[in-house]
């Protein structure tokens, strides 16, 4: 199968996902009992006023017409208008999504930086105390409710120690860097704004560590398993027999090969991290999608909920597509077939 065929097929799937996901969310959000028009009009409004708003929003039209209009708008980049904020949903998502992405990427980097060495150590010294320690740590990581952990580290590092700020993405008294990318960290570096950068880094540590904690274990586990596969391969034995040092074999030969299958796991971890981010954000006042989407669900803000689900799913599939393509490029065996 050629690279292009795979690409084309996966892009086709991307479209399928958007349609599927939007259909599912649309169906779900219209099953929700409750009337968004009533929420806009206020509790004390008359029924006639509510009906007028319903008509203005097009909520009185048949569902398939509403869905058709939604998709037509979506193709043109219009995700509709949020019922809750009265602003275009796309605008709100652009305001909130980069922060979530920033948090997820920071957590992912943290989990890779810690998880890979731990996984290698665990595989190399299999069934030794360090292996048990790493595996126990991994298990504790995936077993910890992130929202609970978040509360505890917040109290410890802000409340007791006063080392780190309690929440938000940047100190509101510091003028934020100009928006180049929407990612505060990157923007602060580009702008060369040291004060902002320090503030952004400090604010990022606790939420990223909380979110990453769970995934250090997952990465370590994956690397361990892939390393064990590699260490059992003939070439490793040959290399050792040929007089190469153990550390050289492990780091130069086994690890790079073990990293390749682990790349796909990163794509999946991205999805898990997004899920974790929603919970972590609510605890750390992180200005991402988490609080926005919870508030939108509570307010029956259909366009906002749909926009969020579709955009996040789209990003998730896209990331996995990129990961898979990277995998094809990295893995010599697949290249040979192509």
């Amino acid at each position: 199968m050629s690279f292009l065929t795979i690409l084309r097929r996966r892009l086709g799937f991307l479209i399928l996902v958007v349609i599927g996901v939007s259909l599912i969310t649309f169906a779900i959000s219209h099953m929700i009992p409750g009337d968004p028009a009533r929420l806009i009009a206020g509790d004390r409004a008359s029924d006639a006023a509510v009906a007028a708003i319903r008509q203005k929003l097009g909520l009185d039209r048949p569902l398939y017409v509403q869905y058709g209009l939604y998709i037509a708008g979506f193709v043109q980049g219009d995700l509709g208008t949020s019922i809750r904020t009265g602003r275009p949903v796309a605008e709100d998502i652009i305001a909130f999504f980069p922060a979530t992405l920033e948090l997820v990427i920071a957590a992912l980097m943290l989990s890779v930086l810690l998880g890979v060495p731990l996984g290698v150590a665990s595989a190399v010294w299999r069934d030794r105390p360090i292996d048990h320690a790493v595996r126990s740590f991994a298990v504790i990581g995936i077993s910890t409710p992130a929202f609970w952990l978040g509360l505890i580290v917040l109290l410890l590092f802000y409340g007791r120690l006063g080392w780190l700020p309690s929440g938000g993405a940047i100190d509101p008294l510091i003028s934020p860097p100009a928006h180049y990318t929407g990612f505060d960290l990157v923007d602060a570096v580009i702008a060369g704004n040291a004060a902002a950068l320090v503030s952004v880094v400090k604010h990022l540590i606790l939420p990223a560590a909380t979110l990453g904690f769970v995934h250090v274990g997952i990465v370590a586990r994956q690397i361990r398993s892939a390393m064990l596969d590699q260490l059992g391969e003939d070439y490793v034995r040959t290399a050792r027999a040929g007089g190469l040092s153990r550390s050289r074999v492990v780091l130069r030969h086994a690890l790079p090969n073990a990293m390749i299958p682990s790349v796909t796991v990163l794509g999946l971890a991205f999805g898990d991290l997004l899920y974790g981010a929603v919970l972590t954000e609510t605890v750390f006042a992180w200005p991402g999608m988490g609080n926005y989407v919870v508030a939108s669900i509570q307010a029956l803000d259909f366009p906002a909920v749909m926009g969020f689900t579709v955009v996040v799913s789209f990003a998730y599939v896209l990331v996995n597509l990129l990961v898979d393509l990277a995998y094809i490029v990295l893995d010599p065996r697949i290249k040979e077939i192509g």
Partner: peptide
């Protein structure tokens, strides 16, 4: 160069100085 200096500032200030909550 400015970016590097900024990064340096973070590493020194961010790690060395405790963030005062008060």
């Amino acid at each position: 160069k400015r970016m590097l200096m900024t990064l340096g500032a973070v590493l020194t200030i961010g790690v060395a100085a405790p963030v005062s909550a008060i």
